[in-house]
Design a protein around this nucleic acid. Structure first.
Length: 477
RNA sequence: CGGGGUGUGGCGCAGUUGGAUUAGCGCACCGCGUUUGGGACGCGGGGGUCGAAGGUUCAAGUCCUUUCACCCCGACCA
């Protein structure tokens, strides 16, 4: 933290130095801590609980689709990565390599997985003979190490957690459908669980995953107007299968390389969540990811209030709400309210003698900071409705923010003006050209985020030539 | 990897320019009491050897040398 404030552990303004705010909120909301080695982080219980909620949402959707979980080793020989040239070129700059084990130098160094395509596909090849062995639909929840030069808790760390799904199919169609299915799942979880909307589409050749033929991405807008690449889904065609000799005999009796996909969703999403929804008072968690959805804070911890608090607690718990009753008697009322506000709990119930006398339940919504009351009788169903409303409102807010900061640019001058004046996302007609892309990056710092699915007749904003494709540009995180 | 910065109780910092009594402050922590409808107050406590190593000096947090680490800004990335 840079300056004076924090006399009382208060949070800096989000509208001030975003980096200060981000670091402070991680500490004050008890989300994370720095690890002892550069770029590593500790997921504290409250932060990890958010991840568990995300995991559950994704995992359910994967399994519904027939994807099974498995686990492959974290260490494998360097030679595995080297079997696909683009793949190793993409990852070698950020590899952690184990050269010694048991006090002796290893004959062949082992890499700590930066992603698992190579080791998994080698085994897929061993397991596959016939078209009947396909598809293979495997996911793993694991950790990944990439030696990042510039790190930030959750957003980019040397070690991070994610899931990586890896599939092999008998046809290109099936693989492409799977690639798209995974992105649909991701988009759904971002929207419906994290209450964050963004843009999805195909990456340009320059921004594509190392070794992939096509990469689908979901790009979300952060308050700095920078884009956060929030998850990706790749189509490999037969490229990886060739490198790993993943061959099957098709129904006609011919040998054929399998068609493959991989897709990943990482703990970076938590960083996006913090940045997208947080405000000057701290974290704001959408109810579906919130480890605690409702907290009951007693004004005084006397017997009457405690008894009533426990009753409300039981009712909400029975109704399936993740609820906490803050019975701490060594902290004051005001302190506790602020504590839960910083932690982003969606609904705070304030319980005192007044409420008991009047037969009501007072609450505050964290998202809007507005207060309200319900009749005591049947309060659980009201709270559940409130939780749904908050979830929906936060998504609406996110969509609005995204749309309000997305601009069209007819030509490069306008493009440059927008980037310089207010930043944001820019939609343009453009014919993909890597040289032009590089030039734009140099001049404006903006890069292509993705090619949107929509198409229309228009003119290329850079060259003035006819163009159908609509591309999204922004500065990336 | 380039540029900038910082290492002093758990956290945030002052002290370093011009070396010198037992190294300070705020928050946090412990005890007691008074408080309690939006981050309480009083009194009393505990805790650091100044990132590390070496050197100069009668004397080093402060000067010199070396070294390590982390943070921020850029190029690379989920």
């Amino acid at each position: 933290m840079s300056n004076q404030q924090n006399e009382k552990n208060l949070l800096p303004k989000k509208t001030g130095d975003l980096s200060d705010w981000y670091v402070a909120i991680n500490r004050l909301a008890d989300l994370s801590d720095y690890g002892p080695a550069k770029g590593t982080m500790i997921f504290k219980p409250y932060g990890y609980a958010i991840w568990e909620n995300i995991q559950r949402a994704l995992d359910d959707l994967f399994k519904e689709h027939g994807v099974e979980n498995a686990y492959f080793p974290m260490l494998f020989p360097m030679s595995y990565l080297e079997r696909e040239k683009d793949h190793v070129d993409g990852f070698s700059p950020e590899l952690a390599v184990v050269t010694h084990g048991g006090g002796e130098k290893l004959e062949e160094p082992l890499v700590v997985r930066p992603t698992s395509e190579s080791i998994m596909y080698d085994y897929y090849a061993k397991w596959t003979q016939s078209w009947r062995d396909l598809p293979i639909l495997i996911n793993q929840w694991n950790n990944i190490v990439r030696w990042e030069k510039r790190t930030m808790p959750f957003i980019r760390t040397s070690e991070f957690l994610w899931q990586e799904g890896h599939t092999a199919h008998a046809t290109a169609r099936e693989a492409l459908d799977t690639q798209k299915w995974a992105m649909d799942v991701y988009r759904k979880v971002y929207r419906e669980v994290l209450a964050i909307d963004g843009y999805s589409g195909l990456k340009s050749a320059a921004e594509r995953f190392a070794g992939a033929e096509e990469t689908l991405t979901f790009e979300t807008m952060m308050p700095s107007m920078k884009a956060l690449q929030s998850c990706t889904s790749h189509y490999f065609g037969q490229k990886m299968a060739r490198a790993f000799n993943l061959v099957f005999q098709n129904q006609a009796g011919d040998d054929e390389y399998a068609y493959q996909t991989s897709w990943g969703f990482s703990t970076r999403s938590i960083g996006g969540l913090i940045l997208a929804h947080g405000d000057d008072n701290g974290l704001r968690l959408p109810p579906r990811v919130a480890p605690i959805q409702v907290v009951i804070v007693p004004v005084k911890t006397d017997d009457e209030v405690l008894a009533e608090g426990r009753k409300i607690f039981d009712e909400l718990k029975k109704a399936g709400v993740r609820v906490k009753f803050d019975e701490r008697d060594y902290e004051r009322f005001g302190y506790k309210l602020n504590d839960w506000e910083v932690k982003g709990v969606p609904v705070i119930i304030k319980l005192g003698a007044k409420e008991i006398t009047d037969g009501v339940v007072s609450y505050r919504r964290r998202d809007t900071l507005s207060d309200g009351q319900y009749k005591r009788a049947g309060v659980a169903s009201k709270i559940i409705k409130l939780i749904d409303t908050i979830q929906a409102d936060m998504l609406t807010e996110s969509v609005k923010f995204r749309d309000e900061n997305t601009y069209d640019a007819a030509d490069y001058d306008e493009f440059k003006r927008i980037m310089a004046d207010r930043s944001g996302f820019i939609k343009v007609h453009w014919n993909e050209d890597t040289d032009i892309e590089m030039k734009i990056k140099e001049e404006t710092k903006a890069t292509t985020r993705c090619k949107l699915a929509e198409q229309s007749d228009g003119v290329d904003f850079y060259t003035g030539q006819p163009a159908k494709d609509i591309w999204l540009f922004a500065q990336s995180y």
